[in-house]
Simulated assay, not measured.
Amino acid sequence: MSIKDAITSKLTQALSPVELTVIDESDHHRGHGGWREGGETHFNVKVVSDAFAGKSRVERHRMVNALLADELAGRVHALALSAKAPGE
């Protein structure tokens, strides 16, 4: 399973998002720190979920970071994240 697929699967299972976009932006970072041959090092994630209602931006990011701890400890070097509740 690709890292993109793992991110998508974990966030879908845990957050039941109404919107989820996972983009591998590794090619934009070729030659920069953390980039590796084969990509899957830099991701941009947009997730909209009821699970974020009433939570601060920091709390939302901590939730996602905890769900993706294995990926962030491994190959993923950078994660740009937008985490919102529906209607925001």
Rank of each mutant, 00 (worst) to 15 (best):
D70A: 15
I7T: 05
E71L: 05
T8F: 07
F43S: 05
R62F: 12
H32P: 00
D5K: 13
D50M: 13
G74W: 04
R62N: 12
K46N: 11
H28C: 02
L11Y: 09
A73I: 00
A51V: 11
G74K: 06
H77C: 00
D70E: 15
L15W: 04
D24E: 09
R30H: 08
L68W: 04
G74R: 06
F52E: 10
A14E: 13
E59R: 10
D70P: 06
K55L: 14
L20V: 01
A6S: 14
R30V: 13
G38M: 06
V45I: 15
Q13A: 15
T21D: 09
T8K: 14
E59V: 08
S9L: 14
D27K: 13
H28R: 12
K46M: 11
D70M: 10
H29T: 00
K46Y: 03
R36D: 08
A6W: 07
G34M: 02
E19T: 13
E37Q: 12
G34L: 05
H29P: 00
F43M: 03
G31E: 03
A66W: 06
A51D: 15
D27S: 13
A14G: 10
R30A: 12
A6Y: 07
T41E: 07
V22P: 03
D5R: 13
S9P: 05
A69H: 12
I23V: 15
P17H: 06
H42A: 08
K46V: 15
H28A: 11
L72G: 09
R30W: 02
L15H: 01
P17L: 08
L15Q: 02
S26P: 01
A6N: 12
L15C: 04
S2H: 10
E37N: 03
V76I: 11
G31V: 02
V76H: 00
P17T: 07
H32G: 07
K4P: 02
A78W: 01
E59N: 08
R75T: 07
L11P: 10
M63D: 12
G38T: 06
A69V: 11
S2E: 09
E19D: 13
I23Q: 13
E59P: 09
T21S: 11
I7H: 04
V22D: 05
A66T: 14
E37S: 11
I23F: 07
R30E: 14
G38Q: 06
S26G: 04
R36V: 04
E40D: 07
G38L: 04
T21K: 13
E59G: 09
K10C: 07
W35T: 00
H29D: 08
V47G: 04
H42P: 09
N44R: 15
S56M: 08
D5G: 08
T12G: 10
L15P: 07
G54N: 13
A6R: 15
I23W: 03
A73E: 06
L20Q: 03
E19G: 01
I23H: 12
A53W: 04
D24M: 08
S2K: 06
R36M: 10
R36K: 15
L15N: 05
P17V: 07
G31Q: 02
T12D: 11
H42N: 12
E25D: 14
L11K: 05
G39Q: 09
V22K: 01
V22Q: 07
K46T: 15
S56P: 05
D5C: 05
